[in-house]
């Protein structure tokens, strides 16, 4: 079970969190004309990298904040965690 450092609450066990997928995906702006391909990429296409991955976790049984976690998908090492609006290094 992962040990995730919530930037709001501190170190908490994984069972307090829900996984939220790739954190680098950016939702297209509202009312913007975009191609089918662009929209499909946003809705469906995700990379599944082996190694470093910036991902979203929701501290659902804690502060209810969405946070960003930089994790190695093969070793589960967590390098850094960020608040939702924090700049990524």
């Amino acid at each position: 079970m992962l040990y995730i450092n919530c930037p709001h609450c501190g170190l908490r066990s994984q069972n307090e969190f829900a996984y939220g997928g790739d954190a680098t995906v950016k939702r297209p702006e509202l009312n913007k004309e975009i191609s089918d391909q662009e929209w499909d990429n946003f809705v469906y296409l995700r990379k599944s990298p082996r190694g470093k991955h910036l991902e979203l976790w929701h501290h659902i049984s804690g502060c209810r904040q969405w946070i960003k976690v930089e994790r190695d998908t093969s070793t589960h090492e967590i390098f850094k965690t960020y608040k939702a609006n924090e700049a990524i290094e």
Binding site: A18, R27, H58, Q65, W66, A84, N85
Partner: peptide, 13 residues
Amino acid sequence: LSHLEYYLQLVWP
């Protein structure tokens, strides 16, 4: 609730 929080915190802060 999670859905609303997602959009408020991440998409349209």
